[in-house]
Write a protein that binds this DNA or RNA. Structure first.
Lengths: 216, 216
DNA sequence: GCGTCGAAATTGATATACTAGTATGACAAA
DNA sequence: TTTGTCATACTAGTATATCAATTTCGACGC
């Protein structure tokens, strides 16, 4: 992998995890020194991050970690629902036994991580579940698209307090989706997915009070 | 606008219009000389094009105009249908009189361009129509997303022979969508849009015969 | 308090050079 | 003839130094 790609990944992860706070300045020169490389790969990484909406570049002025665009979050949720409705409906139509087995394996790992309260591993399996449904539907590119769209939602969610028992709730919702797919019940698969995605919308107003300068 | 952005736009247009043929090599050095700039802005433009899937960069080897990924086109159509179903349904719910007027204005211009057989202006208004629906629905970002997804579809369509009377057909389909939105008839608005988008799928097998080396 | 000027800072772009993979073709060996 | 190896040329990736263009911001004078 190239140096630029590595820097992109590191900055990407740091911004998503809020390790780099929204609004924080990012200077090419400083980053280049920190990473021990020249400005060139740093620039490439920042340009890609700007396209993803994770940093904002103001020419001849400065580069900053983007503030979370609260106004765009409802639209992002709508887009995600639209796309994942498509994948789950198709998956419910075409899923084979081995596909269900894959989903079961993911849910099982999720349960294990939930019982150990390992949020990071749990989150990874959550993503794997949705990605698997996209793959089962035969539309793997849709998950790629969803990932880019859900970026800002995830950042906002990181700011919400962890709700006790939420991992268990998510696992139950996943199980409901899995059951509907296994039963080839398109309608209830769709409904279960909509319930699941509807529950993930962060409480915008509360966030704004606690972290006023994190949002645009 | 920056030099890099200008170069990006020029290359983007040239690739979409097939002026730059799929598979054609693009050398940073050569492009830099042609545009009369240094390698840096050319690189930035190529990197953005690579993210959009319009060029393929093979490190330490070469950069090429991407071949059209025929296998990805069905998925792109599914994604577009999914997203535009969402916008048209919402638009049918919330459209005001002035919104309908905007659609009418676009359709009127389209009719004019069709009667003069000006394909390029007609195409621009076609895009404006879908963009307007996205805006009316309150989800302008969805059109941005659709634009990126439909890139490869558009390239493939450029290779198909112009069908006589297609402009008239498209205008009729747009009118049907407009009427359903004006009537706040969500169901038939959706159906009209699906008919419209279903008619745009290029004939993949025929293309492959005529331009075998344009596809991946 | 307000407007203006100018220095400092930052990204944008250039030029050059070097590194490290990759493709190519010639050539030798089987 | 086929196969494997090697030398070569070529390309993108990175480094470095420098200048340009623009914005930011504080000092200064009014």
């Amino acid at each position: 992998m190239t140096t630029a790609a590595a820097i992109y990944q590191q900055l990407h992860a740091a911004i998503i995890s809020l390790e780099l706070q929204p609004g924080m300045p990012l200077q090419e020169k400083v980053l280049a020194e920190e990473f021990g490389v020249s400005r060139t790969p740093v620039r490439e990484a920042l340009l890609r991050l700007a396209e993803a909406g994770l940093v904002e570049i103001f020419p001849q002025s400065g580069t900053f970690v983007s503030r979370i665009p609260l106004s765009a979050i409802p639209e992002a949720v709508v887009i995600r629902k639209s796309l994942e409705r498509t994948t789950v409906e198709r998956a419910a139509q075409v899923a084979a036994a081995e596909d269900i087995a894959r989903l079961d394996a993911i849910i099982a790992r999720q349960r294990a991580h939930a019982s150990l309260s390992d949020a990071s591993l749990f989150y990874a399996e959550d993503e794997a579940f949705h990605e698997a449904i996209s793959a089962i539907a035969g539309y793997p590119g849709i998950w790629t698209l969803v990932k880019t769209v859900k970026l800002q939602i995830d950042r906002a969610r990181r700011l919400t307090l962890p709700v006790p028992g939420r991992m268990a709730t998510v696992t139950e919702e996943h199980t409901a989706i899995r059951d509907a797919i296994a039963a080839h019940d398109v309608k209830s698969a769709c409904e279960a997915m909509m319930r699941h995605l509807g529950a993930v919308i962060p409480d915008v107003t509360a966030l704004r009070q606690h972290h006023p300068d994190y949002f645009a």
